[in-house]
Lab assay of single mutants.
Amino acid sequence: TGEEYIAVGDSTAQQVGDLTFKKGEILLVIEKKPDGWWIAKDAKGNEGLVPRTYLEPYS
């Protein structure tokens, strides 16, 4: 379980453990880390770190 967020920009994984996503994708945020990198899952079930500045709450 988690909260749904929509990507407001494209982000390409810079290192192992990062999640690549495109603008408009809905991501499920699993954990919000205080350093600004959140753990999220995409629609295909891929999981990784995403920069919170690229996400907005999805409603």
Rank of each mutant, 00 (worst) to 15 (best):
L27D: 01
L55K: 01
V50P: 03
D18I: 15
A43P: 07
T1G: 12
K33A: 08
T53C: 14
K22C: 08
D18F: 15
Q14N: 12
Q15E: 10
D18S: 14
L27H: 00
K33D: 06
E3S: 08
V50H: 02
K44W: 14
G48L: 04
E56H: 08
K41M: 11
I30Q: 04
T20Q: 11
W38Q: 00
E3P: 05
Y58N: 07
L19E: 00
G17V: 05
T1Y: 13
K32N: 02
T12A: 11
V29E: 00
G17R: 05
F21E: 00
Y54E: 09
K41E: 04
T12C: 14
Q14M: 13
K33F: 10
K32C: 05
Y58R: 07
L19T: 01
K44V: 09
P34C: 11
R52L: 11
K33V: 06
G24Q: 02
A40H: 00
W38K: 00
I39A: 04
V29R: 00
L27T: 00
G45H: 03
G24M: 03
G2W: 14
T1I: 14
Y54F: 13
L55M: 06
E4Y: 15
E56W: 08
A13M: 08
L49K: 12
Q14E: 12
D18K: 14
P34D: 13
L49Y: 12
G48D: 02
I39F: 10
V8F: 04
K23S: 06
A40I: 06
Y58P: 05
S11L: 15
I39S: 04
F21I: 07
A7F: 08
L19V: 03
L27S: 00
E31L: 14
K33S: 10
T1H: 12
L19D: 00
Q15H: 13
T20L: 08
G48H: 04
T12M: 13
V16M: 11
R52C: 15
A13Q: 08
R52N: 14
V8G: 04
S59W: 11
E25A: 10
G36W: 03
T53P: 08
G2E: 08
G2N: 09
K32E: 04
Y58K: 08
T1F: 12
K23W: 05
I6Q: 06
D18T: 15
G17N: 07
G2H: 11
V50F: 01
V50C: 05
P34Q: 10
A13N: 11
I30E: 02
E4G: 05
V29D: 00
Q15I: 10
Y5G: 00
A40C: 15
I39L: 13
E25G: 03
P51G: 08
G45S: 03
F21W: 04
T20S: 14
E31Y: 12
G45C: 05
G9T: 15
V29Q: 00
P34L: 10
A43K: 10
G9V: 15
K23N: 05
K44R: 12
Q14Y: 10
V8I: 14
D35F: 04
S59V: 13
A40D: 00
T53R: 12
R52A: 15
A7Y: 09
F21Q: 01
D10L: 02
